[in-house]
């Protein structure tokens, strides 16, 4: 066991997979000799050679397209898109090609690729380095979408993603690369080393996709969250003293529907939290599912706490970010609502 922050855990997962699978390779912008702008591939080119971890042109569409071709050949490419905001030139490749290749060829070809990309705000990245685009992937049939919230999960989920024979979008909440963030930017940052989930096995382990994690058991209300917002939700529960059950979904597709419904049927209340903007967000799907699956158990309207329906504004970052105060208010409304 070692103490790792999320970047180190991701680096360790990549290291493990390059070592275990001779067909695994990494490429992307600045990921080779330099080791990536967030250092996720630091040392891998030196350890395994440029053939296993190399730089790509600034061409997100080209990166994903060539990865699909390599996957169809029989390799297992893991590519980095430097910021999730920059994945859109590759969107056609992900939607029209990676996601449908197996289906349209009736199993002739498939794309076993993993696309790692840092997402989310809280780093003063403005509208070009802060967005949370998960819903544009979860809506695409044929893609899997995974978001870790701790170093331990990041490693186990990334290893599972790389082992998948289907394309996986692996969104990394960059605000919590170095430490868990409770949504209070005014407080000093805490490093991962003070958090139990920074205990990370050095070797191989996989966390199966589609398994949510109940990170806080409770009886009053279910909170559905992922990524950075798991920590914000925990802070809100602690600050309000509400007996919330906080579920870290970890994998949005496939979704662990059984864990979600079991919790909401128990608590009868549900608050959904994400950083992405609200309208048509992943929370809308969660809300619809909870309504469909748990309607007769619900004792209050489902609440959504999200980013606003604006681009991510640079100067108003903390007004946009759905911090613990907003989550706490929603928790209160939800537990105090009477049917």
């Amino acid at each position: 066991m070692a103490t790792m922050n999320m970047i180190q855990a991701i680096n360790s997962a990549l290291d493990v997979m390059l070592d275990r699978d001779p067909k695994a390779l990494i490429f992307g912008e600045d990921v080779g000799y330099f080791g990536g702008v967030f250092r996720a591939t630091d040392g891998l080119a030196a350890k395994y050679g440029a053939k296993r971890c190399f730089d790509a042109p600034i061409s997100e569409g080209g990166i994903i397209a060539t990865a699909i071709g390599m996957g169809a050949y029989g390799l297992r490419p893991v590519v980095e898109i430097q910021f999730a905001d920059y994945i859109l030139p590759a969107y056609d490749q992900l939607v029209s090609e990676a996601a449908r290749l197996r289906y349209r060829s009736a199993g002739d070809f498939w794309a076993p690729i993993t696309v790692r990309t840092p997402y989310g705000g809280g780093i003063f990245g403005g509208q070009t380095h802060s967005s949370s685009p998960e819903a544009i992937f979860t809506h695409v049939t044929g893609l899997k979408t995974v978001i870790p919230s701790t170093p331990h999960d990041a490693k186990g989920l990334l290893i599972a993603a790389i082992e998948e024979d289907d394309p996986v979008i692996f969104l990394e909440p960059k605000r919590i690369y170095q430490g868990p963030f409770d949504g209070h930017p005014e407080r000093p940052a805490t490093p991962w080393s003070q958090h139990p989930a920074s205990d990370v096995p050095e070797g191989y382990y996989a966390i199966p996709l589609g398994t949510a994690n109940v990170v806080r058991a409770g009886r009053a209300v279910t909170v559905l969250a992922y990524g950075t917002m798991v920590h914000v939700a925990l802070a809100a529960a602690a600050e309000t003293g509400i007996d919330a059950e906080v579920i870290d979904l970890r994998s949005l597709v496939p979704l662990d529907i059984d864990t979600v419904t079991a919790s909401v049927r128990k608590t009868g209340r549900c608050v959904i939290v994400h950083e992405a903007s609200r309208f048509g967000g992943y929370g809308a799907e969660l809300s619809a599912l909870v309504q469909e699956e748990c309607f007769y158990h619900l004792q209050a309207p489902i609440e959504r706490v999200t980013g606003w329906d604006t681009p991510y504004p640079h100067a108003f970052e903390w007004d946009y970010f759905p911090g613990p105060a907003r989550v706490g208010k929603a928790l209160k409304r939800c537990v105090e609502a009477e049917t």
């Binding site: 397209a65 699909i68 071709g69 390599m70 169809a72 029209s96 090609e97």
Partner: peptide, 18 residues
């Protein structure tokens, strides 16, 4: 596929893999 040009990159990636 009916999409145009989106598989030329696959051919290049496939060839790179070879």
């Amino acid at each position: 596929s009916g999409n145009l040009g989106s598989r030329v990159g696959h051919a290049v990636g496939w060839a790179m893999a070879s």
